[in-house]
């Protein structure tokens, strides 16, 4: 039986911001169906940039991006891929722009061509799934930071994506909300890549953990050695211990 193509495949990606030094040089990454990847790395390593490259918000200088078995070359390929990939932004205020929660969650389904009644139904159902019943008519600017994060997740889930790209979803969440978030992720039958600086959270949510450093992806085995030391200042960067 031929293996299913990876959901997302990056090969040989190079990228630099205008006037900046090269951020990636020949980066490879693969997300297979059912896989749950964790991605960590120092501030400014390019984790957010990597997500934006995957959905075509930024264009690589070199390399190829594939999603769901077909190459993504021009804007229309990316537009089609974005319907199936949900990207959670690092800052929830970027993600939520409608006056009320319901409007925001229904925005995606409406864009996918659903009727207002269907979109409203999908939005209400998704909000209930995340334990956000009764939030429908709340103005976004009245939500707390954690509530905004959950509503952001709802806006993605309402579009029934096949892949989630989560950029620091637990940033600013308290332990209880974090546990709730984790619980939701584990219940979802969905593949995802999750960026987080909290290795504890990554270990609980992801099956494989990669680190992004110096423009390359370091695989699990290269960082497993250091799993036990996640509490010290070097974080997940490869480094040596002086015993």
């Amino acid at each position: 039986m031929a293996a299913a193509p990876p959901l997302i495949k990056l090969s040989g990606i190079s990228f630099s911001y205008p006037g900046g030094k090269p951020l990636f040089k020949g980066l490879d990454l693969e997300l297979r169906a059912g896989e749950r990847l964790g991605l960590s790395g120092p501030n400014g390593a390019g984790k957010t940039t990597l997500f934006h490259l995957i959905v075509g918000l930024l264009k690589p200088a070199a390399g190829a991006i594939e999603a769901f078995g077909s190459p993504l070359k021009n804007e229309s390929d990316f537009v089609a891929a974005r319907r199936r990939i949900g990207l959670l932004f690092q800052d929830a205020d970027d993600q939520l722009f409608s006056p009320t929660v319901l409007e925001d969650v229904a925005f995606g389904p409406l864009n996918l061509g659903k009727t207002p009644a269907e979109a409203r139904e999908a939005a209400t159902r998704t909000l209930a799934l995340l334990g956000l019943q009764g939030f429908e008519e709340r103005p976004i600017h009245h939500l707390s930071g954690g509530e905004k994060k959950l509503v952001s997740l709802a806006t993605l889930l309402a579009m029934e994506p096949e892949v989630l790209l989560l950029d620091e979803p637990t940033n600013g969440l308290d332990d209880k909300t974090k546990a709730n978030f984790l619980d939701i992720l584990q219940r979802l039958e969905i593949s995802f890549i999750i960026i987080s600086h909290e290795l504890d959270f990554l270990e609980q949510s992801a099956r494989t953990i990669y680190a992004l450093a110096e423009g390359r992806i370091l695989s699990d085995d290269q960082i497993t050695l250091h799993r036990h030391v996640h509490a010290h200042p070097h974080g997940s960067l490869p480094h040596h211990h002086h015993d």
Partner: peptide
């Protein structure tokens, strides 16, 4: 963020 959620230049209303 809007592009990621399928926005293509037209707003729809609930």
């Amino acid at each position: 963020a809007m592009l990621c959620r399928g926005f293509h230049g037209r707003f729809h209303t609930l």
